[in-house]
Nucleic acid binder design. Sequence first.
DNA 1: GACGTTAGTTCAACTTGTGAACCTATAGTT
DNA 2: AACTATAGGTTCACAAGTTGAACTAACGTC
Lengths: 395, 395
Amino acid sequence: MARPERKTVRDVRKGNRGMLLRTLYFDGPASRHELTGLTGLSAATISTMTGDLLADNIIVEAGQVDSDGGRPRVLLRVNPGYGHVIGVDVAETHVRVELFDLEMNEKARVDYSLRPSHHEIELVARRILAGIDVVLADGRVPAEQVLGVGIGVPGIVERGPDTLIHAKTFGWDGVPLGAMMRAGTSLPVFIDNGAKTMGQAELWFGAGRGAEHAVIVLIGSGVGATVVAGGVVMRGASNSAGEWGHTKIALDGRQCRCGGRGCLEAYIGAEGILERAGVPTGTTDWQAALGRVLESRSPVIEETVAYLGMGLANLINLLNPERILIGGWAGLMIGRDLLPGIREAACAHSLAQPYNATSIVLGELGPDAVALGAATLVLEEFLNTSAPLRLHAAS
Amino acid sequence: MARPERKTVRDVRKGNRGMLLRTLYFDGPASRHELTGLTGLSAATISTMTGDLLADNIIVEAGQVDSDGGRPRVLLRVNPGYGHVIGVDVAETHVRVELFDLEMNEKARVDYSLRPSHHEIELVARRILAGIDVVLADGRVPAEQVLGVGIGVPGIVERGPDTLIHAKTFGWDGVPLGAMMRAGTSLPVFIDNGAKTMGQAELWFGAGRGAEHAVIVLIGSGVGATVVAGGVVMRGASNSAGEWGHTKIALDGRQCRCGGRGCLEAYIGAEGILERAGVPTGTTDWQAALGRVLESRSPVIEETVAYLGMGLANLINLLNPERILIGGWAGLMIGRDLLPGIREAACAHSLAQPYNATSIVLGELGPDAVALGAATLVLEEFLNTSAPLRLHAAS
DNA sequence: GACGTTAGTTCAACTTGTGAACCTATAGTT
DNA sequence: AACTATAGGTTCACAAGTTGAACTAACGTC
């Protein structure tokens, strides 16, 4: 059973302040009067809390609105310049660092390309730290103004006293990236799996907005999923929930690169599709190759749709989401052409009641939202705690 | 995102009181002093709150314990006789009503058998209402002392302003059982799917105790699962989460009674196993038949273990639970003999990291815990709200 | 300029958890 | 039997929180 923590009157304030801030962030600008309706709090509380937030410079006034025959409403909004957040995407071929303001407008970015199979952790950590300095300089943002750094990495991110990362393809086995970052910067650091941060991005700013129960499916060369239950990303016992790609859909199926057989990824992952369509293994431009396969209307495509529909149907039956988003570069390509067929296949393999409760749609943020999602981890923390900026020296 | 409700100082009390009560229920008896450590609350708060609870008769003193050289500790515990809860199991062949005290000791029970394909809702509702009267009379418990009635039913339970039940096999399509019960009794009524109530029972009182992330798998003639995430049973958008039985594990597999093909249930459900083993369809004593198949060491068994292991592996990869419980009459029979093989098969088909975070064990409560679990719904509500008993007339 | 209307603020009242001081009940010691 | 040490439990002033009611502020209209 869930054991809630001891609560004191101060926690009430923390919780309500966070709720007020989230309301302003997503439904703002709004007047104090409107906020009473949106939050359920009394006018008195709204008054004192907005006073605090204004004093902290976390929110600002945003013009007035006439109210016929009475005092005009003063609109309030989150101050987009109050602080900045940094998102990092550590991928197969590059390390990308992006700087955002609180409204997630990109202020600066820098890319470092990685040579294939040169993913030494020291190198990656150096690139990240250098990238942070570069985007801060480019964006003319002092480090004290940064709320934190979110990092999306491949593999399994084991949360604990020290964040450890296990990523076979990078040769990382229990790499303490969190500790390494803390050694190089005093900014708060948040690390998560890149597929999860991308799911987080779609959930907060993409096609998943407002969903309480959703699954964001990512199809690239690998296949993963972000499961959202009750508005929160599901992490499981050791933060590896969402490994959808290695769901077995046949007892003795195709060989998968994970070593197993019959994994979904071996059928609907980009590599799996190309291999099944007979594309030569030396091909480097996978996107173009997948595009040609999709145009060719080969029977492999029909099969892919069937497998994908089946995989989605299993998610629908087991998790009963209200929305399923398809993302990732390959997912978006397949979905753009074949969404109706995918929906049909999912319908055919799922139970009527949960299928009817679900809508299957494409992601909105494109295939490059890992850094945005990683930065969102920082934003989430800020909106929840709404702690005023402090020096990060001790964190 | 999860939008917490507005909170006031009174909610703090409600939450802390609920936590204190749950602590006493599961870790009790305990002295006030121990409770400060267990709950994190100060001695002062514990003192006033236990005072309230004692005055309400919700908790009682339970003897003393010497403390060397000091004042002895007075032990406190939940008063098992403070109230009673009723659990109902609506199954294919019977309606069972059980009366429990707060410690879930069974005080009375009554069984009504149902004739095959005679599941008219009016009949079932009459049986439930009659059963409530019977167990109250047998147990000599006045109706005012009952905290509520929990009912476990087959099919999908659609929660909303009016609870509607969809159960194909019973011919129920949007049956308003909740409203029908309210017409016949003033007791608070809680309705859920029987597989979920059984999962709830294992989670609270069986092999799932203390687990935050778990899956309780039910294998009978049908196959279902209760997914527990963060200590809470996952329900999804329309309360149908957990339909694991119709997970597709082959693109064009065995015909399932749901109309689909390749459902897990068609392979590892009791019927599916018996059919695959060539047991004549007229057989009535399925348990004996399954027992013979298991003893025969037919290759069908090996296959069943492989499919079950694969199904469990998919749960492990996707949900990353810390524990998986196998229950249901068929699940317990299979598991008793073949658990090591099942574990091996699950290991073979899942990723190492999440597999190592999971333990796969058998349920502890046997195959008849639906009514207990249904009663647990009432208990859960009581422990959370810890509202003193009131007359139920208006509920 | 008076008035009505709507927005926002202030304040006393109430609720809650906490630390410090205090009371209570036992065993051991004189 | 009285005293002391020890540990459990209670009481109370205080800080912090939300709220309804009274109050102030800022506008349009007549």
